[in-house]
Design a protein around this nucleic acid. Structure first.
Length: 284
DNA sequence: AGGTCGACCTGGCAGC
DNA sequence: TGCTGCCAGGTCGACC
């Protein structure tokens, strides 16, 4: 579900609460979210580990420990990491009082030494949780392109990488091996604010457009982080709360409504098997 | 290699 | 009410 701003929000919240905490007990309610090992090995590898740091790469959250090893969480479409200031039992993993928050079903419970806990919830079970000894073992991390906020994501690099690419610019923005962290919502928003049509072939962008694309990518992702992400469907932060950026979204999910700049109706069409939203007047 | 498409899952919702 | 079909923010493997 979440893209870079949502994952970054989760990461920052978790870092405040979990660094220094030790995982005392793990309960696996649905082992399908554990991808690269047996549930038994997963539990053995993470129990009694003390969290040293929490970082983000693309749309993945990476836990490191005072002991060897890493814990990688990819929430994908519907994964949620929820921090609860009480323990949760496997028999009753979803207290009724939390039902209103529209949380997905609890899949894994991490009890902490401070008597609080972290749950991993996931409606569609697309998410994946993995333990590894070395980050090089996680293929996904090895194939990721640069972070949008890094120095590597700059004009010279982008001009070079767009050259000769025949695919539509939106497909490239969403390609994690091209640039990390941008998904369907923010690709639509970035292209709208850059006034570039999503179907434009990447190698037809001129320098002024590439400059605009770079700037809008950073501006929109920064704004979205400031507003704690977008909750179009069921994204929730670690408190179970919605993000507030969806109120500032200009085109995603607004098909049929008027463009906020030119009043022309926003269009929706399917591109690469996914919904794309744009203003055909503003975006060329 | 670059590009495109379907599969993986479940639940909510619109339409009949 | 109840059924059917469609839709969903991501990633990967198969194919051309």
């Amino acid at each position: 579900m979440p893209e870079l701003p949502e994952v970054e929000t989760i990461k920052r919240d978790l870092a405040k609460r979990l660094i220094g905490q030790t995982i005392s007990k793990i309960t696996v309610c649905d082992s399908r979210v554990i991808r690269n090992s047996s549930p038994t090995a997963f539990v053995r590898n993470l129990t009694q580990k003390t969290i040293k740091d929490i970082s983000r790469r693309g749309k993945a959250i990476i836990f490191s420990f005072t002991q060897p090893g890493y814990f990688i969480v990819q929430p994908m479409m519907t994964g949620q990491l929820i921090y609860r200031e009480h323990t949760v039992s496997a028999k009753r993993p979803t207290p009724i009082s939390l039902k209103d928050l529209n949380l997905g079903p609890v899949k894994i419970i991490f009890n902490l030494c401070n008597q609080h806990c972290l749950t991993y919830n996931d409606q569609r079970i697309f998410g994946r949780l993995q333990f590894c000894q070395n980050l090089e073992d996680i293929k996904f991390l090895q194939t990721l392109g640069p972070e949008p906020f890094s120095k590597d994501f700059n004009l010279v690099w982008l001009k070079d990488r767009l050259g000769g690419r025949k695919s539509p610019i939106k497909s490239l923005l969403m390609d994690q091996s091209f640039v990390a962290g941008i998904g369907n919502i923010y690709a639509s928003e970035i292209l709208f604010r850059s006034q570039i049509h999503p179907l434009r072939k990447a190698d037809t962008l001129v320098e002024t457009e590439i400059v605009q694309l770079l700037e809008m990518t950073r501006i929109i992702l920064t704004e979205a982080i400031r507003f704690r992400g977008s909750s179009v469907n069921n994204y929730r932060d670690t408190n179970g709360q919605k993000g507030k950026y969806m109120n500032r979204i200009k085109v995603y999910g607004r098909d049929g409504e008027r463009c906020l700049v030119c009043r022309n109706p926003i269009e929706r069409f399917v591109q690469g098997g996914r919904s794309t939203f744009c203003c055909a007047v503003c975006q060329k």
